[in-house]
């Protein structure tokens, strides 16, 4: 839809530009003077463009989609086996979040959030290298680990929200 190469490392600016060019054609605002049929088609296309853009913009969704295209199964629901080292690290993250939440320490939570985002950045870099060199099996593992970390990030957000209120 956006005329971009199907790989993980995509140029964010090109994606933005392509998305905007497509939306500039299909958005319902551009078809406000059309009949019902034209407006309906515009809404459907605009919906598809949004969906595609959201999938490609988010690195985790993009990786998952790419692996699906290649026929690799993420098995997020069924396969919960993880590397022991990662599980340990994951538990440490969760404990740190719980401790900071319990102590109502907003600064500690903010720091955890920053550290987590740093860690994710490194992991996404590695994931990209794996995906674009065709190493699908380790890429699946990396995606599943990142799914866990995204959940930890959500939890930090919820804790901050609760302390905020």
């Amino acid at each position: 839809m956006f005329g971009l190469p199907a790989r993980f490392a995509i140029d964010a600016a090109s994606l933005d530009t392509a998305f905007r060019e497509v939306q500039a054609q299909v958005h319902p605002d551009r078809h406000a003077g059309a009949g019902d049929a034209g407006r309906r088609v515009a809404m459907q296309w605009s919906t598809r463009a949004n969906e595609a853009y959201q999938t490609l913009k988010n690195p985790l969704k993009r990786a998952t989609y790419l692996l699906e295209l290649r026929g690799a199964d993420i098995g997020a629901e069924n396969n919960t086996a993880m590397e022991p080292a990662f599980l340990m690290q994951q538990m440490e993250w969760r404990e740190a979040v719980e401790d900071a939440t319990g102590a109502k320490n907003v600064n500690a939570l903010d720091k955890l959030l920053r550290d987590l985002r740093e860690d994710k950045k490194l992991r996404y870099g590695k994931l990209g290298a794996l995906l674009d060199s065709g190493a699908d099996a380790p890429a699946v593992e990396a995606v599943r680990q990142l799914m866990f970390l995204e959940k930890v990030e959500d939890d930090i957000g919820h804790s901050l929200e609760a302390l905020d209120a």
């Binding site: 839809m1 956006f2 005329g3 971009l4 190469p5 199907a6 995509i10 392509a18 060019e21 497509v22 500039a24 054609q25 299909v26 088609v41 515009a42 296309w45 595609a52 490609l56 295209l69």
Partner: peptide, 19 residues
């Protein structure tokens, strides 16, 4: 609509598999 999207994207090189 199909046509206008194709027009918007002409000039862009399409790989075999593309997003």
């Amino acid at each position: 609509m199909d046509q206008s999207i194709r027009r918007a994207l002409t000039g862009r090189k399409l790989d075999e598999v593309s997003f």
